[in-house]
């Protein structure tokens, strides 16, 4: 036995030996994954390397290596820009409103779970999932049409609340509610699935025990169901925090118009207009980099807090 151990450790535990062994055993696997690693290096890490143009005056004709290094000039320009606070305010405002709607899918899952009739529950699920399968472009187009001056929603609001009959999305103050309701309409049902599936994972014995202890329906919901959902809620919340600075800009870009930039322009839409419409690559890359760094820091922070408070997080 000792001999064997010695034979293995005798000069064979060295790093070079292990690498050789690993390559000999796994070269097929490495060959297989090579294209995927290439893909990641080019299309995921390439852009990260490309972020260096944020510190340069990038000219497409000169390329990255030929462009002049200018340090933090673009960042300074952005932070002192007239639009900086407007963008920050809009981005945070929209994200904050979306955070308020965070409990909605959880509540929906709880309500669906409490339905007595399985058939009704199934129908309700099928119907509330539908909007997820309609593309964002179509949903936003539909919203724009329905909230136009002659649109169905505008006229309903006109009858109910007597609002003026003009396009809702032409008034700056209306963008936020329209945006939040659009997002809620499209994602509410679908987002509840993950909680519904977590609900099925809760041990039935806990419910029985609570019942024996005399806990009523609401107490069971509060003391058994909610704690059972907590890990899922925490993970979803962290993921949501990470997206604070990346508010669904595709939806914003489809819904907004120049008349209401004041309340609807967010960092990412600004990056798009500056970079790809106006061609200020370096400047908008700097804005984008700011966005990435803050998002990343937020995820890290939330994860750390959740690990401390809850003992569980993303990693």
């Amino acid at each position: 036995m000792n001999k064997v151990v010695k034979a293995v450790t005798d000069g064979r535990g060295t790093i070079t030996y292990r690498i050789k062994l690993d390559l000999k055993r796994n070269w097929q696997l490495y060959l297989m994954i090579l294209p995927i690693i290439m893909y990641y290096l080019i299309f995921k890490y390439g852009p990260m390397f490309g972020l260096s143009i944020a510190f340069m005056d990038y000219k497409p004709a000169r390329g990255i290596l030929g462009s002049h290094f200018v340090g933090f000039k673009h960042f300074e320009n952005f932070f002192t820009n007239y639009y900086f606070f407007r963008l920050l305010k809009n981005t945070l405002k929209i994200s904050f409103c979306l955070l308020i709607t965070f409990p909605c899918p959880i509540i929906l899952a709880l309500l669906l779970n409490e339905l007595k009739s399985a058939a009704f529950s199934k129908v309700a699920q099928t119907i509330t999932y539908i909007p997820h399968f309609i593309s964002t472009v179509v949903v936003c187009g539909l919203v724009i049409t329905l909230t136009s001056s002659s649109g169905g929603i505008t006229s309903i609001l006109h009858i109910l609340f007597g609002i003026e009959k003009k396009s809702l999305l032409n008034t700056a103050g209306n963008f936020l509610p329209v945006y939040v309701f659009t997002e809620l309409w499209q994602t509410l049902g679908w987002n509840s699935i993950i909680y519904l599936s977590a609900l099925t994972g809760i041990d039935q014995q806990l419910y029985d025990a609570a019942k024996v202890d005399g806990a009523g329906r609401f107490q069971r919901m509060l003391h058994v169901t909610l704690p059972g959902l907590t890990p899922t809620i925490v993970i979803m919340f962290i993921l949501k925090i990470g997206k604070i600075f990346n508010v669904g800009y595709e939806r914003v870009m489809l819904l907004y118009n120049p008349a209401i930039y004041e309340t609807s322009d967010v960092i990412n839409t600004y990056v798009y207009r500056m970079g790809l419409i106006s061609g200020k690559y370096s400047y908008s890359a700097a804005v984008g980099l700011f966005n990435c760094v803050v998002s990343f820091a937020l995820v890290m922070l939330t994860n750390k807090i959740s690990n401390k408070v809850n003992g569980s997080g993303l990693w």
């Binding site: 490495y30 990641y40 852009p47 490309g50 972020l51 984008g288 990435c292 998002s295």
Partner: peptide, 29 residues
Amino acid sequence: NVGLNRFFTILLVFSMYFDGGMIPFYLVV
């Protein structure tokens, strides 16, 4: 027992939380 898998996993997962953003992506493509 694949030596580089840990490295690959980190490489992949990191890109989930940090990306280069729209403009560099556009330039790369």
